[in-house]
C-alpha cells in the first residue's frame, strides 16, 4: 500500500521534472515534449510509452499556452500552418500506429535509439537558430500563388514591417509528413523539423517559421494523443503532474528568455540535451542487447560525448562569427 504522503512526494518529483522539461524546452526552442520524455524515461522509471504520452500532452500544453501570444502579435502564418498540417496529421497517424506496433512487439529499445538520434539531430538546426536573419528573396513559384504564401509581420527589433513570400510548398509538405511521423512515434511535437521545412525549404523568415511551427505542434500532438489514448499510453497520474510542471516551466522560461542578455547560457542547455540524446541511444542499445554496458559507464560515455560535441560546435560557431565580423 502506498500512503498519500508518498504519492504527494512522487507527484512533486514529476512536477519538478516537468518544470525542468518546460524550462529547457522553451529556452532552447525545442518545445515541451522533446525534453520531458528522456527525463521521465531515464530518471523517473516511467515506461517509455507512458513517457511518450506525457510528451504529447506537454507538447499541446506548451503550444497552446504560447501560440495565442504569437498569433496576437500576428507573426505565425495560420495559412502556412494549416496547409502543412494536412500532411503532418497524416504523418502522426502513421507514426502513432507504428509506435503501437513496435511496443506490442516488445521492441521499445528501437524507439529509444530513434529518439536519441532525433534529439541529437534536432540540435543542429536549433543551435543555428540563434541568428535571426531574413531569408534572401527567391523567385516566386506556382505554389506561392496557389497557396497564398505571402504575408508580413512587424519586427519589433528592426522596427519595421517585414514582407515575405514562401516557395516550394509541396516539398515542405513532404518534410513535415516526416515530422508528423516522428511526433507520433516518439511522443514529441516535431517542431524542429517543421522549422527546418519552413525556414530551409519554403524560405520563410525564421520568426514566422518558429511561431507557425509552435501553432502546428498543438494540432499534431492532439491528433497523436487521441490514438495514444485508446491504446492506454496515457497514465493519469504522470500526465496530470507533467502537464502542470511543463506549463510552469515554459512560463518561467519565457520570463527568463526576455532577461538573458548573455546568449552563451544556451550552450549549457545544448550540452544537457546532447547528454540526454546519447543516454537514450545507449539505453536503447542496451534494451535490445546490442551494446550492454552498466549504468555508470553509460553515464560517463554520454557525459564525455555531450561535452566534446557541444564544445566543438561552440568553437566552430565562434570561429565563423570571427570570420563574419573582422574587427
Amino acid at each position: 500500500m502506498i500512503t498519500v504522503y508518498a504519492a504527494v512526494i512522487k507527484f512533486i518529483l514529476i512536477v519538478v521534472s516537468g518544470i525542468l522539461g518546460g524550462l529547457i524546452g522553451s529556452l532552447t526552442g525545442l518545445g515541451g515534449g522533446t525534453v520531458i520524455v528522456p527525463i521521465l524515461s531515464l530518471f523517473m522509471g516511467v515506461p517509455l510509452y507512458f513517457a511518450a504520452g506525457a510528451g504529447l500532452i506537454s507538447s499541446i500544453a506548451t503550444s497552446a499556452g504560447s501560440a495565442s501570444a504569437y498569433t496576437r502579435e500576428r507573426i505565425a502564418n495560420i495559412k502556412v500552418g494549416i496547409g502543412l498540417e494536412v500532411s503532418t496529421t497524416l504523418g502522426v497517424i502513421v507514426g502513432a500506429s507504428l509506435a503501437v506496433y513496435v511496443y506490442t512487439k516488445g521492441l521499445e529499445g528501437v524507439i529509444y535509439v530513434i529518439f536519441g538520434l532525433v534529439l541529437l539531430f534536432s540540435l543542429i538546426p536549433t543551435i543555428r537558430r540563434g541568428k535571426y536573419e531574413l531569408p534572401q528573396e527567391l523567385k516566386k513559384d506556382r505554389s506561392t500563388g496557389i497557396f497564398q504564401l505571402v504575408g508580413s509581420y512587424f519586427d519589433s527589433k528592426m522596427k519595421k514591417e517585414i514582407k515575405y513570400s514562401g516557395v516550394r510548398w509541396w516539398l515542405g509538405e513532404i518534410v513535415v509528413f516526416v515530422s508528423g511521423t516522428l511526433s507520433g512515434l516518439l511522443g514529441i511535437g516535431g517542431g524542429a523539423l517543421n522549422v527546418l521545412a519552413m525556414d530551409g525549404i519554403m524560405n520563410l523568415p525564421m520568426k514566422v517559421a518558429t511561431t507557425t511551427s509552435n501553432f502546428m505542434v498543438g494540432i499534431t500532438a492532439a491528433t497523436g494523443t487521441s490514438i495514444y489514448w485508446y491504446e492506454g499510453y496515457i497514465q493519469f497520474f504522470i500526465v496530470a503532474s507533467t502537464a502542470i510542471g511543463v506549463l510552469i516551466g515554459a512560463f518561467l522560461g519565457a520570463k527568463i528568455l526576455v532577461r538573458i542578455s548573455n546568449k552563451n547560457i544556451r550552450w549549457i542547455f545544448f550540452s544537457i540535451l546532447s547528454f540526454l540524446g546519447a543516454q537514450m541511444v545507449l539505453k536503447g542499445l542496451n534494451a535490445e542487447s546490442m551494446l550492454v554496458l552498466n549504468d555508470i559507464i553509460r553515464l560517463a560515455i554520454s557525459a564525455v560525448f555531450a561535452f566534446v560535441l557541444i564544445f566543438s560546435i561552440y568553437i566552430v560557431s565562434r570561429r565563423k562569427e570571427a570570420v563574419a565580423r573582422p574587427s
Partner: peptide
C-alpha cells in the same frame, strides 16, 4: 497505489 505506481504497467490505471 494502483494509480501512482506506474512502474507496474499491468496493474496501473491507464487511459484505455
Amino acid at each position: 497505489s494502483q494509480l501512482v505506481n506506474y512502474e507496474a504497467p499491468s496493474s496501473t490505471l491507464n487511459s484505455s
